[in-house]
Design a protein around this nucleic acid. Structure first.
Lengths: 202, 202
DNA sequence: CAGATCATGTAAATTGTTACATGATTCT
DNA sequence: AGAATCATGTAACAATTTACATGATCTG
């Protein structure tokens, strides 16, 4: 097995887009670039965002590396890709052995980070925008939750139920953070320079 | 003002690294590339990760764009940068008017997403690794919390108190998610294909 | 048949990573 | 003097975004 896959042993380390696509192909069955783009938009993009202009070239590279093959050709150059055994092995290897990078890059959190440079009223403006935005997201997720359970009940077994749960928890945490932070900014604005803020209620 | 800054009105949209550096310079006062690299490592990197090899060229571009200036030159080509008025304006503009991108790219969440492709015992292995890793992170954050409060009490007013709180909440949420997910995987493994899992306890 | 959308791609620019390279200063 | 670390950069490559480009198929 190691002899057969030695070409693909290279750097499995990053290339998370590849892994995401392999994951989708492994549960959905054969699919085209267009199909995968839509699948990504509807599901994985909540955890790993990608555009079609990145997906098409990546699929070509994946086929060249043998982790997927062209299963069939449709009408207008439409290529249907299927995951290979080597692809399945790569994906499982990454999942089981790759310690996920903790490197974060979140504009949301960056704005939180920089909030103290603003005057209280400006900060409250930013927080207000955040609150509206995150409440919209929460509403969308809660609406999707019913749909999700229906698909589950219909035995569709969509990938990503745990990630969906994680997203929901994350969103609820953000709503709470925004509200607590707003309250804190207000309290301080009223009280002048005060003591240290509590970071979490009991 | 708009006439003065028209050159920098360009695309403030992304360039978050630039904003992060401007934020640090605006509270720390003048600093060198090396200083900023260390500051990034100790603080913003929890929110926006960057290496020195990206920071040095970015500082050069920022100086060329006039958002920072070389304030002084130290011994070995050490350049001390200072934020300009235009830089302050850009940073505030981004903070107040740029709706933060919600695009996520998290290897952690991607592994969560793909968890269902694994057998229960493999999934439990992955979750176990996650639990250990996240508990370590939580311990580090909780240790840093005391330090943080001390610095606050000493009037250092380090940037990022709200982001620190956000990070702590995020980490606690992850610990809870890992534990609940482990329990769920175990429950299902024992019970065979079951119903839909509850996404959050009351 | 016109407009929507399906469907696939490429090009250029930006952003980020890894590795390489180098010399100065401080500590023992 | 030798080791550690301070300090600054560059080069090559990989990942990502934005914009451009094009033609097919379906719907009313």
């Amino acid at each position: 097995m190691s002899a057969l896959t030695c070409q693909t042993v290279r750097k499995i380390s990053h290339m998370s887009l590849r892994i995401a696509l392999l994951g989708l192909l492994s549960t959905s069955g054969p699919a085209s670039g267009y199909d995968l783009t839509k699948m990504v938009d509807r599901s994985v993009s909540h955890v790993w965002h990608a555009r079609h202009s990145q997906i098409y070239p990546e699929l070509a590279k994946m086929a060249a590396d043998g982790v997927i093959t062209v299963d069939a050709q449709g009408p207008r150059g439409r290529k249907i890709y299927r995951i290979t055994e080597s692809g399945t092995a790569d994906m499982r290897e990454w999942l089981v052995h790759h310690p996920p990078s903790t490197a974060v890059r979140s504009e949301w959190a960056l704005q939180a980070f920089l909030l103290p440079v603003l005057d209280p009223d400006e900060a409250l403006g930013v927080l207000d925008r955040m609150r509206q935005s995150i409440r919209t997201t929460l509403a969308a997720l809660e609406a999707a939750e019913g749909d999700y359970r229906a698909r589950w009940a219909a035995k569709e077994r969509p990938l990503g139920e745990y990630a969906f749960d994680l997203g929901l928890r994350h969103t609820r945490m953000l709503v709470q953070w925004v509200e607590d932070t707003e309250a804190d900014v207000r309290r301080r604005a009223g009280a002048g320079p005060g003591g240290v803020r509590g970071t979490a209620g009991p």
